[in-house]
Computed example of a mutant assay.
Amino acid sequence: MLLLGSVVLLIKRPALGLNRQDALVILAMASYTLVGALEAWWDGQGMRGMDKPIRLLLAIPVLLLVMAYPPRLAWFWGGVAVGAMGAGGLAMWLKVIEGVVRPGGYNNAIQFGNLSMLLGVLCLAALGWAVTQPRRHLWVALFLVAALFGVAGSLLSGSRGGWIGIPFVLLVLLRAYAPLVLKRHSVGALVSVLLAGAAVYAVPEIGVQGRVHQGIEEVQRYVAGDRSFTSVGARFEMWRGASYLIAEKPLVGWGSNGYAEAMQTLANEGVINERAARYDHAHNEFIDTFAKRGLIGLMVLLAVYLLPMRFFAKELGARDLSIRATATAGVLLPVTYIDFGLTQGFLSHNSGVMMYAFLLAVLWGIYSRQRKALAHGEYPSINNTLHN
Rank of each mutant, 00 (worst) to 15 (best):
M85W: 09
L122A: 01
V121L: 07
L124A: 02
R102N: 06
A59H: 04
Y69G: 02
G104E: 11
R102C: 11
N114S: 11
A126W: 07
A68I: 08
N108P: 04
L73E: 02
I60Y: 04
P71K: 09
L65H: 05
V62I: 06
L73A: 07
L63Q: 08
L90Q: 12
M117I: 06
V101R: 14
V66H: 00
L122N: 00
G128M: 00
G120M: 08
R72H: 06
A109S: 15
P61H: 10
Y106F: 15
G128A: 00
G78R: 00
L127W: 02
F76P: 14
P61L: 08
P61Q: 04
G99V: 09
G78W: 12
M67R: 07
I110V: 15
K95L: 03
M85D: 05
G128V: 00
M67P: 02
E98C: 05
L65R: 01
F112K: 01
R135K: 08
V131G: 03
G104Q: 15
A87T: 08
A81S: 15
G83T: 14
R72E: 15
M67I: 13
G83Q: 07
P70I: 06
F76H: 12
R102F: 11
V101I: 11
Q111D: 13
Y69W: 14
P71L: 14
L90I: 05
A59F: 01
A81C: 10
W93T: 04
L94I: 06
P134E: 01
L90R: 13
F112C: 03
Y106Q: 11
A81M: 09
N114P: 13
A91Q: 03
G89P: 05
F112S: 00
W93Q: 05
N108Y: 11
G113N: 08
G86R: 13
Y69F: 15
Y106C: 02
G83M: 07
A126K: 09
